[in-house]
Design a protein around this nucleic acid. Structure first.
Length: 193
DNA sequence: TATGAGATCAACT
DNA sequence: GTTGATCTCATAC
């Protein structure tokens, strides 16, 4: 039986959580799949929303671990993060891509797309496919409508620099499932370099 | 394949 | 007024 991931799982170093989330199953109202790509954001990181202190938008990041931080990106998209470490540490993991396994028909309806690879290949796409919006900011991840289950042990994890940022862009804080066709952009290790 | 514009909101200068 | 943890569509090479 799948093991649910609860608060203690998130009350750890944000990089350990990010790596362990690869291969885990993430569902929202029964729709979702296997997490194949995430990025870590530490509060000491200039690219983190929490770097310059607390604002109404990022307040959830300053709360306890194991909660969802949902924010609007570029005015139109929603992106979901999992709050990590301890209360006030303001670190989080951005969910960037999912391999769809549950509720694929519902995701296709929301995204109006046939290509399964693109349904959840990007942080904005993940929220659109699963139906996550700002209304779900601050909800606990271990109770409905959210559900999180541990995946297989020892999945192969690829690591690389984060995407779409300008500050601290060289830090290798992006984690992915090695060889997955569902990531938003390939990892260099996949391309064989 | 690659680059560019537009959509449109919160935070910051 | 500008920028950004984005995506889609259009046009160009």
């Amino acid at each position: 039986m799948p093991r649910p991931l609860r608060s203690p799982f998130f009350a750890r170093d944000v990089h350990a959580v990010a790596r362990d989330l690869i291969g885990a199953t993430f569902l929202f109202k029964g729709v979702g799949g296997r997490i194949v790509e995430v990025e870590a954001y530490h509060h000491t990181d200039p690219a983190a929303h929490s770097y310059n202190g607390r604002t109404p938008r990022n307040a959830v990041m300053f709360g306890p671990p194991g909660y969802a931080y949902v924010y609007r990106s570029y005015g139109i998209h929603w992106c979901v993060n999992f709050v990590c470490e301890g209360e006030g540490s303001a670190s989080a993991v951005l969910i960037r891509a999912i391999e769809p396994t549950e509720g694929i028909a519902a995701m296709r309806r929301r995204r109006r797309l046939k290509d399964e690879r693109l349904l959840c290949a990007g942080p904005g796409r993940v929220c659109q496919a699963l139906g996550i919006t700002g209304a779900h900011n601050g909800l606990a991840l271990d109770t409905p409508p959210f559900a999180l289950m541990a995946g297989e042990e020892d999945v192969p994890v690829a690591i690389g620099p984060r995407i779409g940022i300008t500050k601290a862009a060289d830090l290798p804080w992006r984690y992915g499932l090695k060889g997955s066709l569902f990531v938003s952009k390939p990892f260099r290790t996949q391309a064989g370099r």
